[in-house]
Design a protein around this nucleic acid. Structure first.
Lengths: 224, 224
DNA sequence: GGCGTCAAGATTGTGTACAATATTTGCACT
DNA sequence: AGTGCAAATATTGTACACAATCTTGACGCC
């Protein structure tokens, strides 16, 4: 209905849905189906799906279709190892460049995140939590690194959907608050350490043992 | 001619051409032209171009076409800052996991790189030089980081095309040799330091002052 | 009844025609 | 001659038709 959205719009909407866990790993995204939802032809849908594939959210299998990626345990570890390489130093750089406007924006982010948690909207809280990390990269004025972190945050959403231990609470709000304090004081060293610890915390809350659930296909699950 | 190549094949060929400086920043890649060269329809070409866009090699302007990206000075710095975050630690990890087969492969790489330099094939030498860095990420068994480094190496080729000081020699072969030695001895610490220094060396050989040459369009070059 | 083969259906892959838009060229007018 | 507008050209954006491939269900055979 109304104006036909562009491929970028569709890609954004789908990405946001993944961030909010409204779209879960393994789900199939049929071209016709997505096209009907957004009132566009398959050509535009295919562009959007390819975009999401390149950012690692979809796995497109030839003549089979596009499926939301199901990161293996190894990939899950790799995502957080990559984040551990990029984000702490980026947080340090952000602490040195952060402006009062940035601080205010991050404060609003945290408030909204808390509000979402109180409203039991875990998906929205998760999305906002990811945006917090992306904002830090933006503040550091490192567009290239920011693009990488965007990808990693997106893929982290998939990892969390698959491997998160406790569904009830996401008790990481304290970490973001502490980071914000360090940024406010332009304490780069502290920001770097906090980010490093925060990421380690996140990984420690995942269950990254080799589950059966991660079998990519039924064939492998039942093979012996 | 003969068998029609897939979109991935075309993307690889174009990427390789960029690595070898056969395709230079600013060049326009017309869909029809590329399609005729590879004997495929525009549909497949567009897929390949989108892929290259997502890896940062092309900038696609709506209703204008696809142009090989011309990184600004800022982007050039960002690329090497990102590499400085990712590659040293990755080299350390590689030193801990490297196998004799990997060592042999890297040795061949270096030999070929020297041969290319002797044969005055600067483009081929540059491509092999980039592959050396990618191989190290592969050896580290970090597929996610490897994908990022691939992007960064590609974009580095564009940066070098635009900002390299001396066209004659690429006197970095020593650095790769030293890195290989560290890997052979499983000396992670040394490998990390060498990689860090190597990347700093590379940046120092660039002319990243704000030249006029970086004007994206004639319009800007002559605007006053 | 179990199993293999094959046909029907559905979904994606690709080429192409047409529409939309940008660029260039020519022309009229000042 | 210079400038502004308009038509012509060329290139990309989108939709659609057809081909290729996979999945599913049915039928016949053992």
């Amino acid at each position: 209905m109304s104006a036909p959205p562009s491929a970028e719009t569709i890609a954004s909407e789908l990405t946001e849905a993944v961030h909010e866990h409204r779209i879960l790993p393994g789900m199939k995204l049929s071209e016709d189906e997505v096209g009907e939802i957004f009132n566009v032809g398959r050509t535009v849908v295919r562009q959007a799906l390819r975009t999401l594939q390149h950012s690692g959210l979809l796995s497109i299998e030839r003549n089979r279709g596009a499926f939301v990626a199901k990161p293996t345990v190894k990939e899950a570890r790799e995502v957080f190892e990559a984040r551990a390489l990029l984000e702490p130093r980026t947080a340090r750089a952000a602490a040195e460049r952060v402006t009062p406007e940035d601080i205010a924006l991050l404060e609003r982010h945290i408030v909204e995140e808390h509000a979402a948690l109180d409203a039991e909207e875990a998906g929205r809280a998760l999305k906002l939590s990811g945006l917090f990390h992306i904002e830090i990269a933006r503040i550091a004025d490192q567009a290239t690194v920011e693009a990488f972190i965007r990808q990693l945050v997106s893929r982290s959403s998939l990892v969390i959907a698959l491997y998160w231990r406790r569904r009830n609470a996401m008790c990481e709000s304290h970490a973001h608050h502490a980071l914000l304090d360090a940024l406010r004081r332009h304490d780069g060293e502290m920001a770097e350490d906090l980010m490093k610890g925060h990421l380690l915390d996140l990984v420690s809350q995942l269950d990254l043992r080799e589950h059966p659930a991660q079998a990519p296909s039924l064939r492998e699950a039942l093979a012996r």
